[in-house]
Design a protein around this nucleic acid. Structure first.
Lengths: 162, 162
DNA sequence: GCCCGAGTGTTACGATGTATCATCACTTCC
DNA sequence: GGAAGTGATGATACATCGTAACACTCGGGC
């Protein structure tokens, strides 16, 4: 392991990378990476915590411009469909994807109860075991969500920082 | 395998069992298993698919009696807190617990995309692997959700039943 | 009787997500 | 050039999910 740094590259610098990746992907697949989609992705990628759709709408709105939640949802649909953003079901919120994986398969989200940061990793061994378990149960998986809530390493290192 | 029947014992007969288990548990812990809580549990346990809180409220309401969603939420809070009912995060809905586990740990929910049935199992091997993965990442887990969407064995056996 | 606590009913509200229709930009085909 | 089609967006309304606040009831203890 230890593409750990890679899994952490949200957070400002990561936004640039995420957008660059999105542009490349959209060029490859002949998709439209429009202004709104870019802005929604930028907003999400600029955070290490998940953002709600309404948070995003507010963040993109300005005195002269109002972005409605419905527009954000549409952009998020596009972005999640192509794996650029992930939905955190336990929070009704979204994070930008830190990987360049082809599919949403095998992802694990680590949600820190203390600082709210979301870390995204893959766990092939867990996937393998899960696949075997599902096969034994006669269940054919299509998609899955695996979200773990707890305390992240950073928060465990410095116990009492508010 | 093939405690499969056991994992399936929602579904009408299972409602009786679920309520019996709940009564026992509440007696042991000196909790109040009130009429509303019993009815909410019965409603959820009588289904193999997850029910939304508003669905439950409607199911319990009758010409002479209106059960508000907020009451259902309170009952569900109680039931989930004591492991009698589980929340399906990906559906914003609830299913009755088919096990008598002490804790919500290690559960896997199998959600059939075709028939909507939810099957609940445990997967110790997956748990073990996940625990190791989290330890390596320096993350201390407190709770987790693992929900798999796909096609259940029953639906795979009879491909074209509407 | 009185108080107190847990559960419930009721109303209102906030937060999340979707349906519908109009508009705009761009392409294609005539 | 102009008509028609397609995909994205704007705007309004609506549906669903969840919670806050307060009043009421019912039991037990004093």
């Amino acid at each position: 392991m230890h593409d750990h740094a890679a899994t952490h590259d949200h957070g400002c610098g990561g936004a640039q990378a995420a957008i660059a990746r999105a542009e490349r992907l959209c060029r490859e697949r002949d998709l439209q990476f429009t202004r709104l989609r870019r802005e929604v992705l930028a907003a999400v990628a600029g955070q290490t915590r998940p953002m709600g759709a309404y948070d995003i709408a507010e963040a993109l709105s300005a005195p002269g411009r109002r972005v409605a939640a419905v527009s954000v949802y549409r952009a998020l649909d596009f972005l999640t469909e192509h794996g650029l953003v992930h939905r955190i079901a336990s929070r009704n919120a979204f994070v930008s994807c830190g990987h360049s994986h082809t599919d949403g398969a095998g992802l694990v989200f680590l949600i820190c109860r203390n600082c709210g940061t979301i870390d995204e990793t893959t766990a092939p061994e867990v996937e393998d075991q899960l696949g075997r378990t599902l096969a034994k149960a006669g269940f054919k998986p299509i998609s899955r969500i695996l979200e773990v809530e707890g305390e992240c390493g950073a928060c465990l290192s410095r116990p009492a920082e508010a």
